[in-house]
Amino acid sequence: MAVTVKFFAYFREVFGGRECGVPAAEAATVGALLDRLGDTPQRRAELLAGAGLKPHLVIMINGAPLPPDRPLETALKDGDVVAIFPLLGGG
């Protein structure tokens, strides 16, 4: 019973892998999940700035972006796939 978190780009080095599972009970919201993932000052600094999300950070839940209003309060449920990465570009 877990939420799957996928990391891309240099976040794979920062968070030590491509992917991890977080028990759903510890990831009821995006805010709770980021609290849990930001377990060192460096990791925390990649995710959060003050009380909000860090600029240039992108989080997608099952391929959809976070809502613009109060994104940290977005609810997560068992089986959700959360992709986390620094804003990327290309083309």
Binding site: A9, P86, L87, G89, G90
Partner: peptide
Amino acid sequence: APVTKRLMRELGTAGL
């Protein structure tokens, strides 16, 4: 900006 600072250099556009 992370994209222009390092990501394009590290991953190229195929980072997408």
